[in-house]
Amino acid sequence: MASNRRHFIIASVLIVICTLIVYWVLDTVLLKPAAAVVEAGPIDYLFDLHIWLIAFLFALVGVFMCYALIVFRARGDEGDGEHIHGNGLLEIIWTVVPCFVVVYFAWIGTTMLIDLTEAHPDEYVVSAEGRQWSWLFTYPESGAVTPDLVLPVDTPIRMDLTSDDVLHNFWVPEFRVKQDTVPGMVTYVRFTPNLIGEYVLRCAELCGTNHSGMLATVRVVSQEEFKLWQSEQVAQLQE
């Protein structure tokens, strides 16, 4: 057992080092799109927390496995290993501890989800309709209908999503959140753009031949520019 203690100390040190390395590699290699909405903050934070968990558990299992394979390799002899059938206490520990971890993560997920889907009293509503293979946006306030989406910065947005034909999905990678559009019902998604720029809306639910090309431009503009754009649209409607 004394040698087991030595093994565990060495393995623990290796696990710490390995966790840091795996986290650093994943953090460097995984290239998230720019964050262009307020909601990306908490989502990316939870993403990062998950990466830490992945790094630690990968190190835990990986180090123990590789370590055991090296230390306990058969050195040419045909004998058998130790006759151990298991350890009830260990099994209970590695059943109960993960319970707390997953409930903790689920609890963070729950509170965050409630925040993400909560209605804002002053949200600006835009309707989007998916159709094979383009998008159509309607601004209820002005009655304007456009093929591209223009949104004011720093304004809570609610997109009301419908579909004319098959399932589609409203997803701007920079906005993180996504939501299916379903024929026969209105679904919705909420976000608050906070970065002025031009993004691409990409349909994320297989919708037939040109699914990969079902894109639309999304422009997040300053509130003044948005007012200006809106009045232009109204003027065009009146012509």
Partner: peptide, 12 residues
């Protein structure tokens, strides 16, 4: 974890 326990102390 049980798989790791199986390898640990064996002659692999």
């Amino acid at each position: 974890f049980s798989w790791l326990g199986t390898i640990w102390g064996g002659k692999v």
